[in-house]
Amino acid sequence: MALILADIACVYAAGTSLESAALHGVSLTLSRGDLVLVLGPTGAGKTTLLRAAAGLLSVSQGSVEVDGLPASGRGSTRGAVGLVFQRPESQFFSLSVEDDCAFGPRNLGRAPGEALQDAREALAAVGLDPSTFGPREPWSLSGGEARRAALAGVLAMRPRYLLLDEPTAGLDAAGRQSVCAAVEEARTRAGVLVVTHDAESFLGSADRVLVLRGGRPAFDGDVSALLHALPTLAAADDVDPPEVPRTLMLARERGLLPPGPLTLDVESAADLLAGALPGGERR
């Protein structure tokens, strides 16, 4: 039971002079409860990957399967994959938050009462109390609240796989934290795929990381393998390294620290540095 992208390729404007490959040879497996990160610079094909995974874009090679069935966004896979776009708060159209969140479930054919129930439940899941936030106008919410309400609108469809495009972009620290907590909650219900530049917020809890460069996989592995490859990936501008491993990388560049593994953890990083420097003591 998983969302499986097998060796997919996507070509834009096929057969014209503008033909360009947006993705090539990309494979990915997303199981329930997983958090998979997709990193890479702008234009690396991250958003195309999301659209293909959601069945909104047909692939020119390979296959996209949802729990063993081809993904098409219709038939039995309809509603199984939820997609939250960049800045989803710009898509609100109802006068109340809960009504907007019920739009997806209603489109799946659920009765209005059931759809509203789903909406309220999803709002609670993203940390927005449905009795306070449900009746409010979507445009009156703060940045982080609006982002989470939009996330609830997709979560309300009860997708088995949830795909998020830059969920923390443009938010302040509190907003980012609240979205990360909502993503953790979503993970208890679905497999979650996050496309992001914000490695800092998500890397600590990811199960697997895919890095794209020019539409092709530049890295595919778990977090410890990513940390191993981080200096190379950072040098190629594929990944913006989180501050803690970046400090260790800088310290190595200056010869303060012998070559070795990187870590995301503040305490182990401090141990590494303290062990290598005069006057420092390990804990």
Binding site: E243, A269, G280, R282, R283
Partner: peptide
């Protein structure tokens, strides 16, 4: 509206280690 930067947390951990 800011959170403690990871670098500041690392600096504190280093101070705790006598650096």
């Amino acid at each position: 509206g800011l959170s403690l930067p990871p670098a500041a947390r690392l600096a504190a951990a280093l101070r705790a280690r006598g650096l």
